[in-house]
Amino acid sequence: MKKKLQIIIPILVCFLVGFLGSRFQEYAIANWYPYLNKPDLTPPNIVFPIAWSILYLCMGLSIGLVLNTNSRKKKYLLKIFLLQLFLNFTWSISFFYFQSPLAGLVNIVLLEVVMIYYALSVYPVRRISSLLFVPYILWVSFASYLNFYILLYN
């Protein structure tokens, strides 16, 4: 039972962070974001919650699998994971709540660095945990492009 909880709880925490972050986006998504100049590659709004649901599942599963190992590094890896989760949450605030593409870009670049560091650091401990971060890294790289474009053209 403990092993299952060590997977289920991180997944639920990731979804909770995503839900809380979305609360900071609501006003801006309705009243600010639609009026920005965005690149042609910007997905329709419906894609974002679907993508993030998959990513939060992968993220939680990644750290949950690490927590189920006997590795001496798991506390350190958990700290890195929590840092990237915090940066993920604060991006919503910096970009949407404060309506600041510049603050969002700084935040998302830091997030990318920490995400990649986590994926590389966890690889020797639990390879699948690292691989579960690949879609997340790719999505946030795409989000960085969107953020950068919005910064340049607005």
Rank of each mutant, 00 (worst) to 15 (best):
W32V: 01
P34S: 03
F96D: 07
I9R: 04
I128T: 10
L20R: 05
Y145S: 07
R23A: 12
P101Y: 10
Q25V: 02
L120F: 13
T69K: 11
C14G: 02
Y153K: 14
G64I: 09
M115H: 06
S53D: 06
I80W: 11
A119T: 04
N70K: 13
I46N: 11
A51V: 15
I93D: 11
S92T: 07
V134Y: 07
L85K: 08
L131K: 03
V106P: 06
N31C: 01
I9Y: 11
S144N: 13
I150Y: 07
I50A: 03
S100N: 14
M59K: 09
I80T: 13
V13F: 11
K3Q: 12
I50N: 00
L152W: 08
K4D: 01
I50C: 00
L36M: 15
I11P: 09
F81I: 13
K4E: 02
L78I: 05
N37G: 01
N45G: 14
L41M: 15
L12G: 01
L65Q: 09
V47P: 02
L111P: 08
N45S: 12
S144I: 07
N68I: 04
L12M: 12
L152Q: 14
I29L: 15
F86K: 00
R126Y: 09
L146G: 07
S22H: 11
V113Y: 09
Q25Y: 02
L61N: 04
L78W: 10
I80P: 00
C14E: 04
V13H: 03
N68R: 10
V114H: 08
S129Q: 13
P44E: 07
I150E: 12
Y97E: 06
P43G: 02
N70F: 06
L77H: 14
M115L: 15
F19W: 15
F95P: 10
E26P: 00
L138T: 00
L61T: 12
Y149M: 10
V109P: 00
K3Y: 06
D40L: 14
V134L: 15
P101I: 04
S129F: 14
Y33I: 01
W139V: 02
L55H: 05
